[in-house]
Design a binder for these strands. Structure first.
Lengths: 194, 194
DNA sequence: AATGTTTGCAAGTACTTACTTACACACTGC
DNA sequence: GCAGTGTGTAAGTAAGTACTTGCAAACATT
């Protein structure tokens, strides 16, 4: 019970924290080992190399397939309710993986390629799901005659921008994330009224 | 006429290109000098250090005050027309400074502090201008009773997301940036109808 | 008790990096 | 011609980096 984390896990978590903050090139193996409370040589005995350590981190804490599941199981086909659920889930997922996303975005000269691939799958998938959702509504005449793809992109990118912005600066004025999600969904719902 | 670029300028431009691609830590002074077509020692004779070179780059190619000027001079007070102009100008500015923005975002262990400050001013200022714009419309009853600040954030973040997304992947399906701007403005205009 | 695994410590290797120094060459303006 | 400026080449320094090796101590399993 007390032995919560193995040495390998401690190293992975320390690596995620440090690399997300300082970038891949800017973080040394010595730093990672020290933050994990082990010696540097132990890091290499476990993972062999710095790159392999990061790959192990991405494999362990990968994005979930939550969005796909949400679209197939939990939608009500009331636009406002659905967009609210989608927006909240989106931010929940992104927040949980914030550090890994940041690592992939910052890059690095020897940053393993697996990392970049991992990070690029999410938005592509979400855009497809959203576009199909709006298309289905459109066919049934539930919403105004808009372009489903553009609407999907607008919604997705609005939330991506909100997320990225939070990454950089926590000076979000006085608007909390959840009120932003609610009100921005209202705005989209207004625009989609037939 | 033929002597278009001085040695200092060549170094600055090479540094921007390389650091935007590889990050600050991942780019060596030797690389920069080679890309500029000069020797490494010349780099240090001109700028003294790698950090000073980057600061010089930011000072030379700084963001313009175009947005402020636009808001005070070129608005027509027709929402659709104005948002279209704002959106297009936003992307024009961001694109022009894409590499510098990318450098600031990627960071680096010894990346000078001036760089980060420079990059964080833009969005704050734009949000204020947009919020005031919507507030003014609201007071005159031209638009629906929405929250001006939230609407400003939504519009801003949607375009930020579109910009960031372009940074990473050029697989923008078949939608060009300009059609996206047009249609997304339509969407906002629909939502703001009283 | 014996044995294998995991770890820390100390030292070191091979390499890279930002930055320096010394000297020679070309060009410019006077 | 000559001083000044800008540049290239060559060599080097001091520090840091990823990664390795050898050895001994702690520990768990048997």
């Amino acid at each position: 019970m007390k032995q919560a984390e193995s040495t390998g896990d401690k190293l992975i978590l320390a690596a995620i924290d440090l690399i997300a903050e300082q970038g891949y090139d800017g973080t040394t193996t010595k730093e990672i080992a020290a933050a994990a409370g082990v010696s540097e040589v132990t890091l290499f005995r476990h993972f062999g190399s710095k790159q392999a350590l990061l790959v192990a981190a991405f494999e362990r804490y990968h994005y979930a397939g939550e969005m796909t599941k949400l679209f197939s199981e939990r939608l009500t086909w009331d636009v406002r309710t659905d967009l609210l659920l989608i927006g909240r889930t989106y931010h929940a997922i992104m927040n949980r993986n914030r550090k890994l996303i940041d690592i992939a975005h910052k890059g690095g000269s020897r940053l393993p390629g697996e990392v970049r691939k991992h990070a690029s799958q999410h938005p592509v998938q979400l855009k497809k799901l959203l576009t199909n959702y709006f298309s289905a509504h459109l066919e049934q005449g539930n919403i105004a005659p808009i372009d489903p793809e553009i609407t999907a992109m607008s919604f997705m990118w609005m939330n991506l921008g909100a997320f990225s912005s939070n990454l950089v600066e926590s000076s979000n004025s006085n608007v909390t994330l959840d009120t932003f999600i609610e009100r921005s969904v209202d705005l989209f719902a207004r625009a989609l009224v037939p």
